[in-house]
Structures are given as C-alpha cells and as structure tokens.
Design a binder for these strands. Structure first.
Lengths: 334, 334
DNA sequence: TCCGGTTTTGAATACGTGTGCAAACGCTAC
DNA sequence: GTAGCGTTTGCACACGTATTCAAAACCGGA
C-alpha cells in the first residue's frame, strides 16, 4: 500500500529498534520476547527484508550467475534445471543468461553478471575471454566451467571423461564387427568436441583401423545430416556422432530421407545420453554424461571456491549405454 | 585487487566529485571535459557501477523474474530463451527460477523474487496463488502469465487460441475420414489443457461425432503412452494428444512397442509445433503455438504494465500444421 | 542487597550510488 | 566591465539494511 514496508516501520510498530528487527531476520541472537514482538509486527505489516540492501552491506548477494549457450540441445535444459535446483538447496539463486551467438557477447554477458555483484559464475559450455577471466579473479568472483575445458585459463572445470568416452565408442564399434567407421565430429573449437574426436581416433588406431572419414558437424543438426550422408555414401557402415543432438538428426536423415536401416546398414553412436536417446523411436547407443554427478561436482567446486579454495579440473566417468542403434543388448556381451 | 573500486575512487582520481561520476554513468548531463576525465579515470581503474546500490536508490532493479515449470517439454526451453533475449533487448535481465513440483512451492519462489526487488514477473505455465497475486499487486509488481490463463485472477495473460485450436484438430480428423477419435488430454488443472479439450469436443460434436474416449495424460510421457494404448485398444483410429511432448511418447509407444502404423492404423495430432515435430522421425501434425509472437506479446504487456497500464488477456492464433502423422499434405486440400 | 559476568539492546555508522539544491561557472549582450 | 541567464558542479542526504560499541538489562550467587 503505502510504499515499501521497511525494517524501521516494523521496529516502530514492535516498539524496538531497527537493529533488533535486523537481528531477528538475519538470525543473530535476540531474546525470545523481542523475537516474538518483531515477528508479530512483521507479519501484520507484511514485511520482508530487502535483499538488495542486505547484499549491498554484506557484500554477498547469494546469487550465482549461470551462462548457458544452446538450449536447443536437450542436454542443457536438463543441466540448467539441475544446477538451478542444486543451487537453491544451498541457499543460492541463479541469474541465468542465455549467451548470444558471437563470442564477444559472452564476455559482455559475464561483465553484466559482475555488475550485478554475483557471488560466483558457472559457465556451461561457453568459453571465457582471458581478460575477463582475469577480471573475475581480481574481483574475487570464482568461475567454474561446466562441460567445457579451457586448459590455458587454469579455471576449475567439470567435464565428463570425453577422451575415454570417444575411445570406448571406437572399441564398441570395432567389437560389433564394423570395419568402415566414420565420425561426425563435434565443434572442434570446443574441448569436448576435440577430446571426443581424439579419444575416438586413438581407439580406432589401437584397433588398427583407419577412419573412413572425420568431418565436423559443429553440433548443428543440418550440418550433421549433410556430413552423415557424405560419409555413408563413401561406404561407412558405422558412425560416431559427436553428441546425441546431432545423432538424432543423422538417424532421421539416414532412415527417413535416404532409406537406410539402423543398425543393419549403418550403426550409430551418440554422446550424452539425453533422455530422448532412450526413446523407442531412436534407441540410441551413446556414452552417458552423468548430469547429476557433473552438476553436483560443479556446485561443490563452486562452493569450495567461494570458501577460498582453488579446485582443479575434474573429469566424471560415464558408461557406454548400448542400445538398438548398434544392435542392442545382444551384442553387449562382447 | 584492493577491494571494490567505487565511484568515489574514480572521482578522486579524475579530480571531480562523486556526483559527477554518477552523472556520467547514469547518462545525466555533464560537460564534455568532465565526461572525458571521468571516462579515462574509470577505464584506468576498471570501474563499473554497482547495480545493487543503483537499484537500491532508484527503486528499480531492471530485473524481471521468470518462473518456469517443466523444462523437459522442449516448448519451454525455447520460450525461455526467447523471453530472455527479448528482455535483454529492452534492457532488462531475467532472474530465472525453475518451479519445483508442488504448488505451494511456486508461491515461495515468487515470494523470493519479490524479495529480490524484481521489477516484474513472468509466470510461464504456472499458476499463482490468490494471496500472492494480491501481494504482487499491492507491491506494484506487475505479473504476466505466459501460456496459462487464470480467469479468476484478472491478470494480464498471453495464451494461444487453445479452444479454437482444439476445434480445428477435430475438424481436420473428421475431414480425413476418421470416425473413432480419442483424446489424450492435457492436465485438466491447466487452462490450456481444459481449453484444448473443450474446443476439441465442441468440434467433434459439431460434426455429430462422439469421442471414442477422453482420458487425461497430464502432460506426462509415461501416462500418455499408457492412455493411448488403452484408447487404440478400444478401437480408436485417430488420437488428439494434448501437446507434442506427449504425442512423441504416444507415437513411439504405438509404433515401436505395439507395432501400429501411423497414420494408416491411427492418425496422431499434437499441439505446440515444437521443432521436433518437424523432424522426419515424427513428422507430426500439430497446432502451432507461435512462440515468437507469444513472447513478443508477453514482453509488450509487461512493459505496458510497468508503465502503469493494465493489459488484459490476449489470445494468439496459430495454424494447423499438417504433416505425415495424419497423412500429410495430400490431405491438406480438404 | 550487591556484585561480576553474560546477554540483549539501541544509537550510530557504513555499504555505493542517485538526486535536490544552491553555489559556481561560462557565455552573450549591453 | 558587468548584468543576466542557462549550464555544470559539489555538497549533503537518502535508499534499507548489517554491524560495531558502549550502555543497559538480566541472572545467579554470596
């Protein structure tokens, strides 16, 4: 009604001082009598502490900035939701920014977060300019990278074991008897993309097999489908696709546009194990990225950093989930 | 380095008063000379205004709270992303909260937003307790509902024309010659779910057809699949599913688990036209919810409300997109 | 009753910025 | 040179809260 209701108003009504009110709501010690009086007055007036003013004086906003890039890959909504929940459980809120296309813009977004006095930042699958990283550091704002490495930046980061995963895929495809194996790679500008590709090539070469072709799909559906067509035309009988999001596009294109059968004509493996991979329509063999564990590790690292620690890089292992797109459980015994 | 760098520090270095610095950064008038001096000093010190302090004194945070519920329905990540971008273009930031399961929790989430002094709230597909709505109103914080109506609350709201859409679906299914038509309804606790169902039933009755069955699927994949099996077992040769998210589950279940053919044995229609509906693997006939327009209308309404206006309810019309799951373009001429 | 020690309380100050007000300034026209 | 007017500037205060410090209240024991 009459403007904002402040702690002073509550104090006046309760017949105590403003500091008493503050103490009651910030959990400091106060006698049972005043607590009671203050609570009652606050209730009657509908008082709620102004978080801004509190943050201004304490220097802590209890807000974590979360930058995220592509929400069309279902891996990220899932991760975002879990991150948000996990942070809420720790008493933090999340200021979410969807990073625009260009990379400079990512930096601008993070700068805006700093302006908002966030206590920390989680960058999901986006890089961080060196200058800005330095800026965060000098401002004492910890940054944790989620699902992307940035070796030169020396930041705490949580990824899955992408190299090992890529290698595991190669082993699996070889084990089920495929000989002409192609790779629709992820964006090679990202550590995840590079690592998966490297691991995969390592695995192939260990088996003495040369890849039929390795072409980046850049995490884009249209490009992935195009690349896949190219590879199967060159005779590939198996494809490792850099993430599930692209793998779905590849399967759609091969099966419904080109008329190929999966896995009979061509086996497909993805990466992430997003929920959709388990749907009957795709039944996609893939490497699971354990989102829950990754989120947990990320939040733990961030909290540690907020406590002054300096967590390092962390890799979470994920299993190969064998499904129909490579022949299913029948082949799993290999 | 040495703690925060404040406007006073900049003032000192530039040889002007703190107010001068404030004026330069808040766009007020200042002489070219001082602007130059202040800019230079700020640059050297790496100064950035503290948004919290600014908000505290101006009473405006330029932050919009966005509550969203289910991120696993791909409609919402998409909407969230667009909302976020649209708000950023207007100079606002979005404080995103993922609403937990229970309804009481939604209220708690909104309360927390109020604590953070958001300038406005967008509630995407979540209801709003009466008491809390009143609270927002008395606090002067405008609330706009996105993709959910709440007639009794008298709040500005943006939905698609769900009743008309449901009716259009009935017309289409009748037009392609289906006689035994079932409905896997959305959650009847939501206005969207109810309206679509009502419109659909209206359309059927206008055609003189009684539905083969109407069972709520509650926007959940597992339940939708279960319900769909039940309906086709009762002889349905067409199903209207309350949203695309459930429709995919229904198609997967019918085709890959039960071995039915779509659309030969059973025609399927969804609602939303999420990107996935156009994928070759589903090729789903559906009513398009024009997310772009809905987002635009929502932001416009919110801005208007921030300016003191009181926008009303708004319905955005969306076309029926005919695809393979009801026989495709061949039937579109009807 | 009085005293030492512990807890509670209120006054005052700080956080970093925007803004009203009056003084200082710059410029033009006489 | 000076009166006059519009613009710029600095001072002081405000926003709503947390927190320091000293004073006050309390409590149990002698």
């Amino acid at each position: 009604m009459s403007g904002r209701v402040t702690s002073r108003a509550v104090a006046e009504r309760a017949g105590v001082s403003q500091s008493a009110v503050s103490r009651v709501f910030s959990g400091a010690s106060a006698s049972a009598r005043t607590v009671e009086k203050v609570r009652k007055a606050a209730e009657e007036l509908g008082y709620r502490p102004n978080v801004l003013a509190r943050s201004l004086i304490t220097g802590r906003s209890r807000i974590i900035g979360v930058v995220v890039a592509y929400l069309d890959n279902p891996f990220y909504p899932d991760a975002l939701e879990r991150l948000s929940r996990a942070l809420q459980e720790e008493g933090y809120h999340s200021l979410v920014f969807i990073a625009p296309e260009g990379h400079n813009d990512t930096d601008r977004v993070i700068q805006q977060m700093l302006d908002h006095q966030v206590d920390g930042i989680i960058a999901a699958s986006v890089g961080l300019g060196d200058e800005l990283a330095a800026r965060c550091k000098s401002a004492g704002i910890p940054v944790v990278l989620f699902n992307r490495g940035q070796p030169e930046a020396n930041l705490p980061q949580v990824t899955s074991a992408n190299h090992a995963g890529g290698r595991r895929v190669a082993e699996h495809l070889v084990a089920i008897g495929r000989q002409r194996i192609g790779h629709v790679a992820g964006w090679q500008g990202s550590s995840t993309g590079r690592d998966r590709t490297e691991g995969f090539l390592t695995g192939l070469s260990e088996a003495g097999i040369a890849p039929t072709g390795v072409v980046p799909g850049d995490y884009r559906r249209d490009k992935a489908a195009e690349v896949a067509e190219e590879l199967v035309t060159q005779g590939a009988d198996a494809l490792f696709v850099g993430n599930d999001h692209m793998a779905f596009a590849v399967m759609d294109h091969l099966r419904f546009i080109m008329g190929w059968r999966v896995p009979e004509d061509v086996a497909i493996v993805g990466y992430d194990d997003v929920p959709m991979a388990a749907w009957a329509g795709y039944d996609l063999t893939t490497i699971r990225q354990p989102v829950g564990q990754m989120v947990e590790a990320t939040v733990t690292a961030l909290l540690a950093a907020l406590d002054g620690a300096t967590p390092g890089a962390q890799e979470i292992n994920g299993p190969l989930i064998i499904r129909g797109s490579t022949g299913g459980a029948a082949h799993a015994r290999i």
